[in-house]
Simulated assay, not measured.
Amino acid sequence: MNRLILVVIIGGSRVALPAAAVESVVEIDALIPVPRAAPHVAGLSALRSRVLTVIDCRRALGLGAGQTSPGAGSEAVVVEIEGHHYALLVDVVDDVVDALGDPEPVPLALGEGWERVALGLVQSEVGPLLLIDAAALVNGADLRAIAA
């Protein structure tokens, strides 16, 4: 079964998102901080008269902050989850390719952040890619684990 996936780079790793979950790919020009927000919430931004909550994918995965501050031309993938719009900050938006089958279990340990968002390993025309769940990125790390 062939289906499209969006290939992105997060924290130096090439991964994929189901293209059906992606509304658009944008550059974030301005970012408004949100006081007391979870650490992976980079802030708010506007896109075509709607407010986007901007998620720093590196922080959501426990990889620390990106090399540059979010905003000012940062690439983001826009998704809608439960009626809310989010911009997922990524290092690079690479390509849209065909998945050459269904996701399969990942045969190795990925680390806590990646394992939390992994839907499986999918074969593609550019090689095997970790397919990730946008909703899990938006949810960020388990806050109970952070508090412990």
Results as ranks from 00 to 15, higher is better:
1 M>V: 11
2 N>W: 00
3 R>E: 14
4 L>Q: 15
5 I>Q: 09
5 I>C: 12
5 I>L: 14
6 L>R: 13
8 V>K: 03
10 I>F: 01
10 I>S: 02
11 G>I: 05
12 G>E: 05
14 R>Q: 15
14 R>S: 13
15 V>L: 14
15 V>C: 13
16 A>Y: 04
17 L>F: 10
17 L>C: 04
18 P>F: 01
18 P>G: 08
20 A>W: 00
20 A>F: 02
20 A>I: 11
21 A>G: 08
23 E>D: 14
24 S>R: 14
25 V>D: 03
25 V>M: 11
25 V>P: 02
26 V>F: 00
27 E>F: 02
27 E>L: 10
28 I>N: 04
29 D>W: 12
31 L>E: 05
32 I>Y: 09
33 P>K: 10
35 P>H: 09
35 P>K: 07
36 R>L: 15
38 A>K: 13
39 P>K: 05
39 P>D: 14
44 L>F: 06
45 S>C: 12
46 A>G: 04
46 A>L: 10
46 A>N: 11
47 L>F: 14
47 L>Q: 11
48 R>Q: 10
49 S>G: 11
50 R>L: 10
51 V>M: 12
52 L>T: 04
52 L>R: 07
54 V>H: 01
57 C>R: 01
60 A>I: 09
61 L>C: 03
61 L>Y: 06
62 G>K: 08
62 G>P: 07
62 G>W: 04
63 L>G: 09
64 G>V: 07
65 A>R: 13
65 A>E: 14
66 G>E: 08
68 T>L: 13
68 T>A: 14
69 S>C: 00
70 P>F: 02
71 G>Y: 06
73 G>W: 11
74 S>E: 04
74 S>A: 15
75 E>I: 01
75 E>G: 09
77 V>I: 09
77 V>G: 08
79 V>N: 07
80 E>N: 14
80 E>V: 15
80 E>F: 02
80 E>Y: 03
81 I>V: 15
81 I>N: 06
81 I>Q: 10
81 I>W: 05
82 E>V: 12
83 G>W: 03
84 H>F: 05
87 A>M: 04
88 L>P: 10
91 D>H: 10
91 D>M: 05
92 V>I: 13
92 V>Y: 12
93 V>K: 01
93 V>C: 08
95 D>E: 15
96 V>M: 11
97 V>N: 05
99 A>Y: 07
99 A>P: 05
101 G>S: 10
101 G>N: 08
105 P>Y: 05
107 P>Y: 10
107 P>A: 08
108 L>H: 12
111 G>C: 06
111 G>I: 08
114 W>N: 03
114 W>P: 02
114 W>E: 04
114 W>I: 08
116 R>Y: 03
116 R>P: 06
119 L>S: 06
119 L>R: 15
119 L>Y: 01
121 L>W: 07
122 V>D: 11
123 Q>H: 09
123 Q>P: 00
124 S>T: 15
126 V>Y: 03
129 L>C: 06
129 L>H: 14
130 L>M: 12
130 L>N: 04
131 L>Y: 05
133 D>A: 08
133 D>K: 04
134 A>W: 01
136 A>D: 06
138 V>L: 05
140 G>T: 12
141 A>Q: 15
143 L>A: 13
143 L>G: 00
143 L>S: 12
144 R>F: 09
144 R>S: 12
145 A>G: 00
148 A>K: 13
